[in-house]
Write a protein that binds this DNA or RNA. Sequence first.
DNA 1: GTGAAAGCGCTAACAA
DNA 2: TTGTTAGCGCTTTCAC
Lengths: 347, 347
Amino acid sequence: MAVPSRGSSTATAADVARLAGVSPGVVSRLLNGDETLRVRDETKERVRRAAMQLDYTPNFAARALRKAKAGVIGLAVHDASNPIYSQIIAGAQAEATRAGYALMLADVDALATDHALFQRVVASGAIDGLLLQRAGTPADALVAKIAAERVPTVLLNDRSRGPIGSVAVDDYAAARLGVSHLIDLGHRDIGLLQVDGPRSRTSQRRKGWADALAAAALPAPAARVVGGGHTPEAGYRGMTALLTSSDRPTAVFVANSLSAVGALSAANDLGVGIPADLSVVGLHDLPLADFLHPKLSVVRLPLFEMGVRAVALMLEQLDDKPARHESIDDPGPVLVVRASSAAPGTR
Amino acid sequence: MAVPSRGSSTATAADVARLAGVSPGVVSRLLNGDETLRVRDETKERVRRAAMQLDYTPNFAARALRKAKAGVIGLAVHDASNPIYSQIIAGAQAEATRAGYALMLADVDALATDHALFQRVVASGAIDGLLLQRAGTPADALVAKIAAERVPTVLLNDRSRGPIGSVAVDDYAAARLGVSHLIDLGHRDIGLLQVDGPRSRTSQRRKGWADALAAAALPAPAARVVGGGHTPEAGYRGMTALLTSSDRPTAVFVANSLSAVGALSAANDLGVGIPADLSVVGLHDLPLADFLHPKLSVVRLPLFEMGVRAVALMLEQLDDKPARHESIDDPGPVLVVRASSAAPGTR
DNA sequence: GTGAAAGCGCTAACAA
DNA sequence: TTGTTAGCGCTTTCAC
């Protein structure tokens, strides 16, 4: 059982040149589509055929060295298994591929902890730019800062307006849409289960909640806001706290997809009927939302598109354009009504 | 608002050499820990300090060119957002980082479709080896074949025994464990919701199911096996089919995590009480399993570890050792009993 | 103990 | 219209 004969001595540009009877320079310029190159069609054809015949592929390292560009974009996340991140990653992947770039995966925490790793990945020229999904830890604030000193950097899902580029979705509009839906259903007492900590995303979402309420001349008491984190566990705890208090709201907007799953679970465990006793709307759609019990109503935000736009922003910066901040609102937030939201008291 | 001064003219080995008053060769050998190098401690120290002072990091491309090795392992998956794959990816990521390699992400379908992309990623020397998570499509059989001709390749979660290296978990033992658990609970009529198609994983799981039944002198009728795919949708359909047939089993082993979620959902929608009317055990643990309704009992397999071992196998091959097939059974399958499995008829 | 030089494969500038 | 050359930054062999 022979191992496939690898090392079939990859052909170089010089080989192609030799076979075609031209010089390496011509091969390079031709295959890279140099417009200023004037060659006979006949020669052109000869070179193309030679390249084809030898199955020529330019050597990655040589080209990267020469052009001082790797053609690789780094993508650093905390938790690649978070389904929300996954959608962003998929978008980034698609756009990077389209633009001829490859995507290199890195773990933010490892990057922050391991200096040698950081150097190898960020400072060695292995990547031309870095896409960074921060989670709000001190570690990634540091990584962002240091990385931006070395390579173009774009912050994912982040509305900070510093010198580092960023791309965000419209959290405010999303929260407002979700809460308005609940109001339209007839709810008057609507809680907010929010991610804790002083993040701009959090405050946007809270503002959306409050403004939707205000627009309907409803109060938005601070007591109706509880911490729900960004994990199912935290959502479970937050919802439990909310539901075991003496008076409970008739509906809750959960400002995070994973914690919405936990929230649902808590309500189930406490015997609180959804949507009969409590309506729940989550932020961000989940692949599994349609298979939860009950099926979770959500506000969907263009996460894939955000990955795409992040890479687009990166390409701009790689083209020496200045860093920008982009808020994606073309595909705006869309309400996906499933079974977890209904008029108060519906069977 | 000044843009961080990038292009701080990264230092080269020559710069370090100049500052330390030695030649570039010494810098290289010293920093790479060449044992055969004999230098005065004093010189050694001088070079180290110079490197530190200039914040020297070896240029990635130059090194890759010279050594004909990129220090990068490619990872091709169909769907990075599948939580099962995510765990494997996390393991691969961790081990690759540990070994000083970076991970490059690719989409199998894009690789199969776009020849130029394939060349750029696999044939250009951008990656030293490829980890491939196949899904059983014709596309990825092709990718595996062509890729293996160019770079060391390891198949993830695959028990094929051809010339290409592979790593697998013990699907047989897992299925057997899950079904035995159900038997221990008192079930006598246990269905199998399996991934369709002629995959070795599928047949292993089916065999585990059948053998567990046989060991308890129970029949394993083919009519009790239904297709459940590997998506929540497919699981939903499969479970619906199973439950709407005239006589239904009292328990089901679902041989895929995502389809188990759909299966649960179908049972809920049909008003079939779990575990009262039906016990369900899934294969592979999910981050969300503990928050489903009811909480899903599963057999957990060492997925993270599989990612780790896949990279380890790759490292062997990169070290010119022959390709191997590894079945991970050190952390064996473990039963995680939650709320979806109980004795038949329990409240 | 350390320096010098060659060369990995490519591209860009300059010759011819 | 095409060839030649220089050099990207590194490692490695050989010379001193």
